Simulated assay, not measured.
Amino acid sequence: MLEVPLWLWGAFAATVVVSLAVDLLAHRTAHVIGFKEAAAWSALWVGLALTFGLVVFLVLGTDAGTEYTTAWLLEKSLSVDNLFVFAVIFAYFKVPAAYQHRVLFFGVIGALVFRGVFLSLGVAVVSRFTAVLFAFAAVLFYSAYKLLKDEEESFDPGRSFAVRMLRKIMPVSEEYDGAKFFVREAGRRMATPLLAVVAAIEAADLIFAVDSVPAVLAVSDDAFIVYTSNAFAILGLRALYFMLAGLLDRFRYLSKGLAVILAFIAVKLILQASHKMISPGIPEIPSPVSLAVIVVVLAGSVVLSIRRPPPAGSGEEDKAGLPD
């Protein structure tokens, strides 16, 4: 495990808190976020993540810096699937475009907490039971298979566990009331549909954690590396969503590229576990190689999607129902 100085943990925590505060203040007035604004924020989040990665390189060394960068890029690429689900949830609940950023803001806070819990448990389990890496590899192989066969499980936002629990705890009103999460109707405190949307977003992130947690643990089993990389990838999700709104379905080969990446990470996990449990002679895949594979596959998927767009009239362009 890395010997991470306390000040570096503090710097990370301060960066996250300040960034969220600035983001909240900048969007305190509900409005529709256009491409230019989203692109500027996305560039800011990417720059922040890479700057922190440079600090990791300088303080903790080349290996740690490479692992951080690989884990961040891996989580960033896997988060693209989240964007499609966000679109489905917003369409299902008919969320006004002006309030979507507020929903995603609180969704990000919940994701930071839940990912922290899952990753802490994952690191603890992997450090004690190396054999669990084989189970993680099986999960990733299955996820890759579903992506290749276009057999992703359908997600019904209205029937998600979180939304059903919310409806049991308190009544949910039928109408939105601006950006409010709670209202009073006939003397009763009620949740607005906006709170139900946040619950659906959190439920979706729990589903995606099944893939992303094993994947990032293949890159590193250090708590600092896996959590900071996840956190910076999650922080940029909102801006990425609004920047790519209307464009996601044009990257038709991206899901295939993600399948290749997941399968590659699964092989990495198997070799890693075999090296520790069976024989030191079994080679492991170095982090620089993992980083190179992820970059090449992602770039190749995007380039191929641009060179081979969906046929005109195929209906693929509008299938996600993303806003203009």
Rank of each mutant, 00 (worst) to 15 (best):
L6V: 10
L6T: 08
T15S: 15
A21H: 09
L25G: 14
L25H: 03
A26H: 07
V32L: 06
V32T: 08
I33G: 00
F35G: 03
K36I: 12
A38S: 15
A38V: 10
W45Q: 13
F52S: 06
V59I: 07
L60Y: 10
G61H: 02
G61C: 02
T69F: 13
T70M: 13
A71M: 03
E75Y: 13
E75R: 11
S77N: 09
L78K: 11
L78Y: 11
V80L: 14
F86N: 04
P96G: 04
A97S: 07
V103M: 09
F106D: 05
A111I: 02
V113K: 10
L121C: 06
V123N: 09
V125S: 08
V126T: 12
V126D: 13
T130W: 01
V132H: 12
L133T: 04
A138C: 04
A138E: 09
V139F: 15
F141A: 13
L147N: 09
L147I: 02
K149M: 10
E152P: 00
F155A: 12
F155D: 15
F155R: 11
D156R: 00
A162I: 02
A162T: 08
R164K: 14
M165W: 13
M165D: 12
K168M: 12
I169K: 03
S173F: 12
E175Q: 12
Y176T: 02
G178N: 11
G178F: 14
K180N: 08
V183H: 09
R184Y: 12
R188A: 11
M190Y: 03
M190I: 05
A196E: 11
E202I: 13
E202W: 15
D205C: 06
A209H: 07
A215H: 03
L217Q: 02
L217K: 08
L217T: 03
A223P: 01
F224R: 01
F224G: 05
V226S: 01
Y227Q: 03
A231H: 10
F232E: 07
F232T: 01
A233L: 06
I234Y: 13
I234V: 11
L237A: 11
Y241M: 03
F242P: 01
M243K: 11
M243H: 02
A245S: 13
L248V: 08
L248K: 07
R250D: 10
F251D: 07
I261D: 10
I261T: 04
I265R: 05
I265S: 12
A266Y: 05
A266G: 11
V267A: 14
K268Y: 00
L269P: 00
I270Y: 01
K276T: 02
S279F: 00
S279G: 05
P280W: 13
P280Y: 05
G281V: 01
I282Q: 06
I282G: 07
S287D: 14
A292R: 04
L298I: 06
V302N: 11
V303W: 15
L304D: 12
E316S: 08
E317N: 02
K319Q: 15
